[in-house]
Write a protein that binds this DNA or RNA. Structure first.
Lengths: 216, 216, 216, 216
DNA sequence: TATGAATGAGGTTTCATTCAT
DNA sequence: AATGAATGAAACCTCATTCAT
């Protein structure tokens, strides 16, 4: 009555549909090797499934990649846990440290996924079209700006600063900490190592500035 | 009898070796279309040279790409001109603005080149192995940190700040300003538009910080 | 408990067996798009039936196609109506005109169906093996020859002519009027347009001949 | 100095370019098996050449097929030799017999080639765009009509007959003689056998007509 | 040494058929 | 008996690299 189930689902993985199984397999590969050089055959093999199945469930490679990318971002964000979104709780320093740690880990995990797709706008626009709560990790900047503004409202940050500028610098610093390792050790790089104390220094810098005295 | 010269060199371009000619052609393509989807045939055609020559001068596509990438970064940096390396000259604000403008332009120009290669560690390690004075645009951070330290020595920036942290944030902000356009508008994106006043806000923020009062 | 019925038969189409339902669906597609590029999935979808059913009722795609082709020829002939089989009725000219009109319409309708199969002898021999009263439209020639012979017997056509030869020429002319449009305008060609008066000229020619005087 | 030659050309077939070699190989297959089910691999194998070569010489499979089809028609026409184009020479009967023999042989040879392409309009329009003197065998009808008109001018055929109609019937008869064998014995059919005397009967019929007396 | 055609592995996709449910 | 997802061979095409000339 019901149609046949894929061998891969029959033994053990029975809880999900093959569609989900395929997305999960692709996500696994993305998280392992990034998005570049990923072939349909790789994905089918990882899913232990025939080459052609994917076309029973997706319009093509591109749709699957977009969905897997989405799943990857979601997985990473789930693993990283909540951001300190409630202003006023804890110290600002601690909260900023949390944002930075989050940003470094997030970018380390998702940049290899996006990198291989810069040249494939179709996948990226499919991705952009997905219901995408937090999104591309770009959401981080928005979230951070929101947090900063809330702290401003509470008086724990100065009123006159441009929170967008601050958020840009902080999130940018996370990129900057991740990129070199990505470029020069490959996606099989050791987990990013931020020198001890460096995050503290970032936070101090952003809070106090580097100028000799307050201008303006 | 001297060995045959490539047709492309015979007329007009006689000053360079074919090796240099090929690197230049590849660089031209990289700067036009980025690194993704670039075939050796494209390069040979751009160089007006037979498909196979490249193997007489390079170990393979990868070596040529690494060298062309290097040339590309050098070209971009040459075109962008000098950075305010002499501390003490002009105002710190102006100098920081110059660094940021430089960084945005630099990353906008070189990120499409690197993007297509994140997944090809071979090219990137060849690149990393090149005698690479300024390098990957990562040089920018080093240069900026040096500048900041010099200003510290002159007393125009506070002694206790970690200039590495500051440089990381500033250069990171440049990444952050460039990346989204790259990802979601393709490499045929409009030239990056930083909102007016935003660079000023970045500078102000980094100089003054965002905290309510100086800590530490 | 009787065996399950296909969904498509349950509502409304209950009069036929699923076998007949499938043949009808395939015939519909053949008459719409010809035989080329027809997939079993197309047929199943047209029949609103699961992909696999067809293998419960036919040896495979080929048998189904052969039967659908047969049905298609039958349908077309039914729609075209009766041929003037009774010699002596009407004028010979009118009757020949009717045969030609019939032949043109018949070939226009069935040639796209056969065209996609010339290269698939299996289907065609299955088709040829079917109890095939009128057959492949080749029946037309037989019918026409029969009619001509009957008119001969009535003295309305000359005794000594070879009715097979005449029938061959007349039916052949129908092919010839249909083929070019088929080849060079695709099966989405406009319905065959025979220039006005041309059928008359064919009839006149076949009746009177083209020679200057009766030979033999 | 010159590039490498294909292995297949090196031993023995050296006179032609690989482009010609490929067209010839495809033509060979077309003449053997018709056009349907012909894969690029088949062609490459027949040409004893690597799978990918064809794309160095043609835009794709379609262009090659169109050219091979063209070559096939040319070959067949060359082998069949000249048609009696000079009116007035020989007897009209003999000339018509020659046309019919030619037409039967021609269609027997080229119809399997065209049949497989009815569903691929792209190939057919490429073919139609080729410089195509005689063309698709459709040229035969034009040539025959021309010949008939010339005989009319000489008074060997009656003035008032529509030569187009006559040509249509005669060429159509050739189709009709060829088609059934094609459909029901496959392209590996025995060479078409026209019953002895049948061609004579066709000629007699077309010259004298079948009517009891000259009408009009 | 330059040439550029030849090579062939490997990419994405289609589709007739099978088969667990 | 019906279902429809799974299967996997095979289609067309690309492209880095080789190599006879």
């Amino acid at each position: 009555m019901s149609p046949r189930k894929a061998a891969a689902l029959r033994d053990g993985d029975g809880g999900q549909s093959l569609r989900e199984h395929l997305i999960a397999a692709a996500e696994r590969l993305i998280s392992r090797r990034g998005t570049a050089g990923l072939t349909v055959r790789d994905i089918a093999r990882e899913a232990q499934v025939a080459d052609g199945v994917l076309y029973n469930h997706f319009a093509g490679k591109e749709e699957l990649l977009a969905l897997a990318l989405h799943a990857h971002v979601e997985n990473v964000e789930r693993e990283l846990g909540e951001l300190p979104s409630r202003a006023g709780a804890g110290t600002v320093e601690d909260n900023l440290r949390a944002y930075i740690a989050h940003g470094v880990a997030l970018h380390a995990a998702i940049m290899p996924a996006f990198a291989g797709l810069i040249a494939r706008p179709e996948v990226l626009s499919l991705f952009a079209g997905l219901p995408n709560p937090v999104g591309t990790g770009l959401g981080l900047r928005v979230a951070l700006a929101g947090y900063l503004r809330a702290e401003q409202d509470l008086g724990r940050l100065r009123r006159e600063v441009n929170v967008e500028a601050a958020a840009t610098m902080i999130v940018g610093a996370c990129h900057e900490l991740v990129l070199p390792g990505l470029l020069f050790h490959g996606s099989a790089a050791p987990p990013v190592q931020v020198p001890p104390g460096f995050v503290d220094d970032l936070v101090t810098t952003v809070l106090n500035g580097i100028g000799p005295a307050r201008t303006r």
